[in-house]
Design a protein around this nucleic acid. Structure first.
Lengths: 214, 214
DNA sequence: ACTAAGTCGTGAAACCGTTCACGATGTGAA
DNA sequence: TTCACATCGTGAACGGTTTCACGACTTAGT
């Protein structure tokens, strides 16, 4: 069993994206410093990460693009492709559905749910919106264990409990609050307002610094 | 000049959200461990962060909610409210516009831009979409230095250069690539596909662990 | 007034992730 | 073949963040 940190896994995903692009352009091999430069990290970092997946390059040719792609995919991908459920088909949910529409070969939003009866049965970005009551059934039938949660903050805790009951073990949450989940559930929250506030803060600091240093 | 790390600033934003809620419910004071529990971090972490903003509580009453709110807001907020531009009014851009619509008193999306002439002049979620050529003018006129970038990956690097030329110093990027920006520009990328892949990876690991440990 | 209980503020330690530094390795040129 | 060179793999050092541990403080109860 491979033990990689969340940061390493995240970077592996980014390496793969670059490698896929390289492969498409016919590039056969790549050096750690090339990958590093594209992502604006250090070459050592890249080599460390690849060490984690147990991949070796050659001191002269660097890394074989196809082989590395395969190696990373073995680590990141689920056989048969990762099937994901999206819960909460509001504006953000739709945007995400649209974004994933056939974009990634191994990462597919396979079902979409909403509690609003007005949406049930409607076809949105290629998926028929289903009622929450179908959750367990669909999740089990499709071998889904990962969900994208795009419901209002007020609903999120309740819905997350439904998800877990239905067998979901990994959740990407967009509701701006900290959800309570059992130990064995992996959950990451993307808090856009918080991120934006952070960006604004540092943009302002830089402005101030310029002023003071002038 | 206050020197806080990005992580601390991010948490301050979250503390404030909780405190705002407390204030609305009439709660007068709060202990570090209460804030900690809500965010699922440690009480020490909370106290450290508040140390950074120079706020003191009392050993018996904890922190005064109103006073702490004011203190954090002094650090995070820009006088008159933060004005932000959104560039790229596709599905995700619209979802974000809709989300910020009057939701935060001190954080306002003040202008939206797109390169598509078909969108120019159209009113979407309360904003009239403007052509990119208006960027400099509008940014200068509204004192904007922060932007949300929701354009396709293929356009992102070009657009980010336009933003910087127009005076933007902080960028929240949703395009799935690493953008090249000068030293003094603060940029954060939210890469949804990468995040989802990470979540799926760990959800799968946990599943495997359960199986092996059983 | 004194004690017990609970929280705050913070120096020091621990932890994790990144970077440095360098030996090992493979390749091409003389 | 041998040398010069560039990159790889990795133990050790480093730096930033979190957590521990504990003295200081405040209040309530006796």
């Amino acid at each position: 069993m491979l033990s990689a940190s969340a940061k390493t896994v995240a970077r592996l995903s980014l390496y793969r994206r670059i490698l896929t692009d390289c492969a498409a352009r016919g590039v056969r091999s790549i050096y750690s410093h090339e990958l590093a430069q594209t992502l604006q990290i250090t070459a050592t970092q890249v080599r460390r990460d690849l060490m984690v997946v147990g991949f070796s390059g050659s001191p002269n040719k660097g890394y074989d693009v196809e082989a590395l792609l395969g190696s990373i995919s073995t680590v990141l991908d689920r056989a048969g492709g990762e099937q994901v459920a999206l819960v909460g088909v509001g504006n953000l949910g739709r945007a995400i559905l649209s974004y994933f529409q056939g974009r990634y070969a191994n990462l597919n939003v396979a079902a979409a749910f909403d509690q609003d009866p007005a949406l049930h049965g409607r076809l949105i970005h290629g998926l028929t919106i289903q009622p929450m009551t179908k959750l367990s059934e669909v999740v089990a039938a499709n071998g889904i264990y990962t969900a994208i949660l795009t419901v209002p903050a007020s609903e999120a805790q309740r819905v997350v409990e439904e998800l877990i009951r239905a067998g979901i073990r990994g959740i990407l949450n967009f509701a701006p609050l900290t959800l309570r989940v059992p130990e064995h559930i992996y959950i990451r929250t993307v808090d856009i307002a918080m991120k934006l506030e952070t960006v604004a803060f540092f943009a302002r600091q830089d402005a101030a610094r310029e002023v003071y240093e002038a």
